[in-house]
Write a protein that binds this DNA or RNA. Structure first.
Lengths: 116, 116
DNA sequence: ACCAGCTACCTTTTTATACAAGGTAGTATA
DNA sequence: TATACTACCTTGTATAAAAAGGTAGCTGGT
């Protein structure tokens, strides 16, 4: 049985967020090394809700693309954590995404202005 | 055989654009009724490249969601065209997406600022 | 009166990926 | 030593973009 969601506001909002996920994750990690829960918390704070099932595969893809590295680190209160940090290649990617994001905002806002 | 695209700049840029497609299409149509080629041209002008195979199904979904109507209109130079326009419901959706887009920009830009 | 080319519509197939749900295991604490 | 908690990861499902191909109306040249 299909859920037949179709198009609605929540769905469309979610789509908008999705496209910016990679960019935001790289940005969060660029501040300082971070493990999954750190990233989830930072994104949540910015109203970019993401769940574990989305984040873990995405971190793996970013790692496989050579944009991230990780190292294990023990925790004082629980199992060891995988701390991610940006590679050189990751920093370059982030710089380019900064431009992309700026340009995208300009393009969209220009398109919207033609409505006035 | 898989193409094994993985993560790269072009792919990530494309993702960013995707999430904003519905919003932009509604915005373009809100200016004045438009048919597929009008919409493609407007999006292209804003560097939001989209192909027919993406646009037609999306217009159908927007129509089925009650956000758009269309009427046929003859052309002086070719086959008849399907001109789309926003329904009341479509205008409401667009208003809400305006807010969503503003909020999304604020959230992301706030997140990015913590890097400085 | 035909046919080549253009415009416009739409569908099918493939691929990517977000999310829900569930699974494994290390650590702390009562 | 058992329960709760944290952290990792995987599997299954649904959505949707894009590539490619298909149908048909209309125009203009011969």
């Amino acid at each position: 049985m299909s859920l037949e969601e179709g198009i609605n506001l929540e769905n469309t909002k979610a789509q908008m967020r999705k496209g910016l996920l990679e960019y935001c994750i790289l940005s969060v990690i660029s501040r300082q090394k971070a493990y999954a829960s750190d990233i989830l918390a930072a994104l949540k704070k910015a109203d970019l809700l993401v769940v574990e099932g989305t984040l873990y595969p995405l971190l793996s893809r970013l790692k496989n693309a050579g944009l991230l590295n990780y190292h294990w680190q023990e925790s004082k209160s629980g199992p060891p954590r995988k701390y991610y940090e940006l590679t050189v290649s990751g920093r370059n990617m982030l710089k380019q995404l900064d431009d992309t994001w700026k340009n995208l905002q300009s393009s969209i806002n220009a398109l919207l202005k033609t409505r006035l």
